[in-house]
Nucleic acid binder design. Sequence first.
DNA 1: TTACTTGTTCGCAAATATACGAACTGTTCG
DNA 2: CGAACAGTTCGTATATTTGCGAACAAGTAA
Lengths: 105, 105
Amino acid sequence: MEKIDYTSRHHQIALYAKALAHPARVAILEFLAARECCFFGNLHDVLPIAKATVSQHLSVLKESGLIQGEIKPPQVRYCINKENWDIARDLFGLFFNDLKKIECS
Amino acid sequence: MEKIDYTSRHHQIALYAKALAHPARVAILEFLAARECCFFGNLHDVLPIAKATVSQHLSVLKESGLIQGEIKPPQVRYCINKENWDIARDLFGLFFNDLKKIECS
DNA sequence: TTACTTGTTCGCAAATATACGAACTGTTCG
DNA sequence: CGAACAGTTCGTATATTTGCGAACAAGTAA
């Protein structure tokens, strides 16, 4: 039997999933999306974690491509990266919806 | 400013995301869904990892609720858990689609 | 019974993730 | 200039994840 390699799709889904794999990051994305954009301080104010930790989670989200940050001295404004957000949405959408015949006999 | 607690939705999305956060598990789910169900051996045959590791990933997926295993001596048959799969699909669907007004000014 | 087949569990090592305070950078304000 | 403000980065501690071989458990076949 032939071993398979993980496809780039597998990797991409896994990477976006990893970005969503912590409640703080889910909350950040939700908060960001609801208000379009917001500053680091707004996020730190509502999240139950230290600012260093908030910064770290934002860093993970930035690396995943789901958000972007813009320096507006003396603050930093974060917002959803719409392009990658759409890519992630489509990846998950296809992944969850295009699997037919799911019935265990 | 009021701190928020992570909601159970945040936690649930994070948990499902964590289940998808490894290429092997994405591949397993895809493989499972394409063939409805299959045995441990089929998965081990196609995945580039040791059987102990396959078992571990299956365990993670089982705990997430996305799949279920049934012992059919001497084999174990795994398949998608449709109920939870639908829940996850809806969670991600709402999460990615119900965020309007995503534009960074 | 013994041997084999199928898959899980154990024990360990290495890598990654999470969290925080303290120190730091860069900007603004007095 | 020095103080205050907004965030990031550093260093560290702890927990979780990933991966594997070896040992194990359960069922089947001889």
